[in-house]
Amino acid sequence: MLDKNGIAKRIAKEVKDGYYVNLGIGIPTLVANFVRDDISVEFQSENGVLGMGPFPFEGEEDPDIINAGKQTITTLPGASFFDSAMSFSMIRGKHVDLTILGAMEVAENGDIANWKIPGKMVKGMGGAMDLVASAENIIVAMMHTNRAGESKLLKRCTLPLTGVGCVKKIVTNLAVLEVTPEGFKLLERAPGVSVEEIEKATEGNLIVEGEIPEMQI
């Protein structure tokens, strides 16, 4: 079973040379730490920066330079700043190559829910609805089950949707899965996790074909 860093490490392998990548808040943010340093990648933050760098050294924080999680950041050579409309032109216009975001629920038809729990948590969707509606390459980073052990990979989402039929790939603490017209296709197992354990933790239709390899991370 993987921890959050393990999930981020596996997702980092999906980041290819020349990609512009948008990272969501939470596990996705960790992905930047594991991207190979022999490839060229630029991270976009939807509040208006491309070419995001690491956190600043203590004493060098600039209140005017933050990421979408409102954290103080730095920029790398080649970075640029822009307004919110242009930021979403990059996203809606499909100029961003890969979107990595978290989810509360994903359904076997690719629906995703991650912005609202009615009566409990209403923080808003931020840029998530724009991202999932437009990105062609979306990877969801999430835990396979909730704290009560219930599956978050469902036949149908129960929470208000963020987008319909948009998720292509999911990396959880247990597995790597692809969303297909028939359901969740199991691609890889996390180290030490059996196919049976993944089947048990998946409420939606799980497709298992042949030997399922263990993740290489």
Partner: peptide, 28 residues
């Protein structure tokens, strides 16, 4: 949605009464 919010401002600035966006389709 954030991109829609930005574009609803920009549309007002640019004189467009409305625009189509994929964001939020199929959601509440």
């Amino acid at each position: 949605p954030q991109g829609t919010l930005a574009e609803k401002c920009r549309a007002a600035q640019a004189g467009f009464p409305a625009f189509y966006t994929p964001a939020g389709y199929g959601t509440e």
